[in-house]
Amino acid sequence: MQHRSKIVKYPARKEGESDQGVGPHFDGGFLTFLLQASDHPGLQVQNLSGQWIDAPPIPGTFVVNIGKALETVTQGLARATSHRVLSPPPGSTPRYSIPFFQNIAQGICVGDFVLEFKPEILKLKESRGELGAVDCGFARTCSIRLMTDLSTVLAAVNYGEFGQYPAGYVNLIGRVKSHPDVAERHYPDMFKQFFPNGLPAQGSAY
């Protein structure tokens, strides 16, 4: 199992720098429990219409995100949370957060463990209506999807590859998409596949 936790520091950005802390993404595991350890804003989640909504810190609480693995095994009944983090503005102090990721073993293919539900349960997805455009740097498609070649994989939605590929490889794709600045430095070939126009720009919510 690959459960893990970490302490994340988001330094205040310099004048003229991108406000990307963590780019738009889905978490790849089952559930994420996040403690926003400082009083900085910055965390945003995306609603079903594709709008970004601020999720400011509330003392004594955790933010709980649904991950793509849980969405996959529940056939979309539990919908993964699209989210991003914006860095503190110039002149601010660093923002800190402590996430705990409930993950899966890297060699497991999540698509092999899809749960069965009665048709009337699956219809509950329809009652939520159509999903609007989500801004995750890629198009959102079905969670369970078969891929036939690498070029298709590289163009696919974040963690949509859970239907065929081991979780470790799928998570690498997800990390490249959600941390483009790091990917540009350490995985330049994959970076060019996902971001042919260079680092994405994000607009501030403040």
Rank of each mutant, 00 (worst) to 15 (best):
M1F: 11
S18D: 08
S18T: 15
V22D: 01
P24I: 04
D27P: 10
G29L: 10
G29T: 02
L31T: 05
P41Y: 06
G42S: 05
N47I: 05
N47F: 08
N47D: 15
I53A: 04
A55E: 01
I58M: 11
G60A: 10
T61M: 08
T61Q: 08
V64G: 07
V64Q: 05
L70I: 07
E71V: 07
E71N: 08
G76N: 11
L77F: 08
A80Y: 00
S82T: 09
V85N: 02
P88L: 02
S92W: 01
S92I: 00
I98L: 15
P99Y: 09
F100Q: 07
Q106A: 14
Q106Y: 09
C109F: 02
C109R: 14
F113D: 12
K123G: 09
L131K: 11
L131W: 06
A133R: 13
G137R: 03
I144P: 00
R145H: 12
V153R: 00
A156K: 03
Y159C: 01
Y159I: 01
F162I: 02
Q164N: 07
Q164C: 12
Q164K: 13
G168F: 03
Y169A: 00
Y169S: 01
G174S: 13
S178L: 08
V182M: 11
Y187E: 08
P188G: 09
M190L: 15
M190D: 03
P196Q: 10
A201L: 11
S204L: 13
